[in-house]
């Protein structure tokens, strides 16, 4: 299959309206829903199980959390703009927006680690200090790993993977769209993580 592509690699399937990669990515996201769902379930269980600090006793910084929320939302917009630019055959702009997304996600991770994790660990709030911090580190850490994975993929498309744009712009744009779907999902998870951990 090296020379010719499998059916529906590029053109959408008439029934599902998706090409292979997009369908596959959505299925992957469905499984991610179950992964984070199990963790949210664990969080609710631990919290209602008793022996959990009441509202306000744990002290995650709401301003830092809100700033990071803004950063992620903005990165979602730059991501979708990157796809739209490639779709409009403007690779220069597309690369610019993709780069912006990478920088924003690095900013997110930097703030998360420098001003939150290290700060909390310095204050003695390690994962073994309390189940609240345990589940907090676990879920935000897993989310952070997802961000990191997204950054790696985007850097790949910016640097070695960009060659595909010259060979097959449609396939490249599709890949950016899939990356975008993943990225918006990661954003979506954070939209729920933020109130659950910082505000409730």
């Amino acid at each position: 299959m090296s020379s010719e592509l499998l059916p529906h690699t590029l053109e959408p399937h008439p029934v599902t309206g998706m090409y292979n990669g997009k369908f596959g990515l959505w299925l992957f996201l469905a499984s991610e829903v179950m992964l984070f769902g199990a963790l949210f379930s664990a969080y609710i269980l631990l919290r209602t199980h008793g022996d959990f600090p009441a509202h306000g006793e744990h002290s995650l910084s709401v301003p830092i959390g809100a700033i990071n929320t803004f950063i992620l939302i903005t990165s979602s917009v730059t991501m979708v703009m990157a796809w739209a630019s490639f779709k409009l055959n403007d690779p220069g702009k597309g690369k610019f927006y993709l780069m912006a997304t990478v920088l924003l996600s690095c900013a997110f991770l930097f703030i998360k680690i420098k001003f939150e994790y290290l700060h909390k660990i310095h204050d003695g709030h390690t994962p073994d200090s309390h189940t609240f911090y345990a589940i907090y580190y676990c879920m935000t850490g897993l989310h952070g790993l997802h961000i990191l994975g997204g950054v790696v993929v985007m850097l790949y498309f910016l640097l070695p993977g960009f060659g595909l744009w010259h060979k097959n712009p449609q396939q490249f744009t599709n890949r950016i769209e899939c990356t975008g779907l993943y990225w918006h999902f990661v954003d979506l998870v954070w939209i729920f993580l933020f109130p659950v951990f910082y505000l409730l």
Binding site: E32, M34, L35, F36, G37, A38, A42
Partner: peptide
């Protein structure tokens, strides 16, 4: 496999 395995991964 797709929908049942992730909860075990979380666990």
């Amino acid at each position: 496999l797709l929908l049942a395995f992730p909860p075990l991964e979380a666990a």
